[in-house]
């Protein structure tokens, strides 16, 4: 009798467990569904960015002063702006700027930050000390303020390079409509954050048993770093990268909004928002269109990052 009531109680607990597990699985599924949705949206944005010259109905700088501020119709699916330029085409070309800044800056900060942080954390010493001092100082200044100052410098400095070893930078900047300067300013500050995280990871791992074991078996420092540390810090670094891409996209659009980003007529979502604000009372769609596209892209990146985090680090259940 007693045992059967115990069994019943156990079954009830198990039922509760199952229900809770089911609910948790459902929540996780919902999160991953958002991640899949976000990934699909990002794939579209990337495809459009890559193929903008082919798929855009007009060129981004083609003006038609006789049909400015046109409402959306068959000819211009998203209408035209103050200079009669096709808004949809500009959004498509703007995706190019956002995506290339986000990906290029992330690639650079990872390439510079991960090795530096790894070496600083693993070996310690002067490099580590210097890195941490720089990080401390930079953390006292808001990221965007620093980037604005750097970018003020680069937008004036890069076009002024006439000769010397940096001439290619000027050419690159001109060819990309100012994207090179933005990537430079963003990564010059951004790599520190990556280095800090990589350093912390290396610091935590360097006394672990598997590292000690490898060392006692006679592995070289190079082998330990490449074969044991790097793969083990890959997951947190990838998770961090998924946060870096949207933060760089936000910064690019912000700089362009302030007039410190890409050079007109190259379209950026930030410039389109800034231009749209001027006419917000009469033509709100000019500011809504780039704002929505930017917000959707950033949300998608966030969902994909969340999905990746759950996939790569199952212990981080919230």
């Amino acid at each position: 009798m007693a045992s059967s009531s115990l069994l019943e109680a156990g079954a009830a607990v198990r039922r509760g467990d199952a229900r809770r597990g089911y609910r948790r699985a459902l929540a996780r599924f919902a999160r991953h569904r958002m991640a899949a949705l976000g990934a699909a949206f990002l794939a579209v944005v990337l495809a459009v960015a890559a193929a903008a010259p082919v798929v855009a109905p007009y060129r981004y700088d083609k003006q038609d002063l006789l049909s400015t501020y046109e409402a959306p119709d068959a000819g211009h699916l998203a209408g035209t702006d103050a200079l009669g330029r096709d808004v949809l085409s500009r959004l498509m070309y703007g995706a190019r700027v956002s995506m290339s800044v986000g990906l290029a800056a992330t690639a650079i900060v990872l390439l510079v930050g991960v090795p530096t942080g790894l070496l600083a954390g693993y070996f310690g010493g002067t490099l580590d000390l210097m890195l941490m001092r720089v990080v401390d100082i930079v953390y006292a200044i808001p990221y965007l303020l620093l980037v604005v100052l750097l970018q003020t410098f680069f937008t004036a400095f890069l076009p002024a390079i006439r000769a010397g070893p940096l001439v290619w930078l000027r050419a690159l900047n001109q060819a990309t409509g100012g994207v090179a300067a933005i990537v430079l300013a963003l990564s010059l500050v951004g790599w520190l954050d990556v280095a800090r995280v990589a350093r912390g990871q290396a610091l935590a791992l360097r006394h672990r048993e598997f590292v000690q074991a490898a060392k006692s078996l006679g592995a070289s420092e190079k082998h330990v770093l490449a074969a044991h540390l790097l793969p083990n810090i890959a997951a947190p670094i990838i998770i961090m990268a998924t946060l870096l891409v949207p933060s760089f996209i936000i910064a690019e659009a912000g700089l362009s909004f302030l007039g410190l980003g890409v050079q007109p007529p190259t379209p950026s979502w930030g410039i389109m928002i800034a231009d749209g604000v001027d006419a917000i009372e009469s033509y709100p769609r000019l500011v809504i269109a780039p704002a929505i596209v930017l917000a959707a892209t950033l949300l998608s990146l966030n969902f994909v990052g969340d999905g990746l985090r759950d996939a790569l680090d199952p212990s981080s259940e919230r």
Binding site: A253, G254, I273, I280, I288, A291, L298, L299, L301, N302
Partner: peptide
């Protein structure tokens, strides 16, 4: 977390 303040401001104004 994902939406920058300038987008938030323009959306609120609109």
């Amino acid at each position: 977390i994902s939406i920058p303040n300038y987008v938030m401001a323009t959306l609120l104004v609109t």
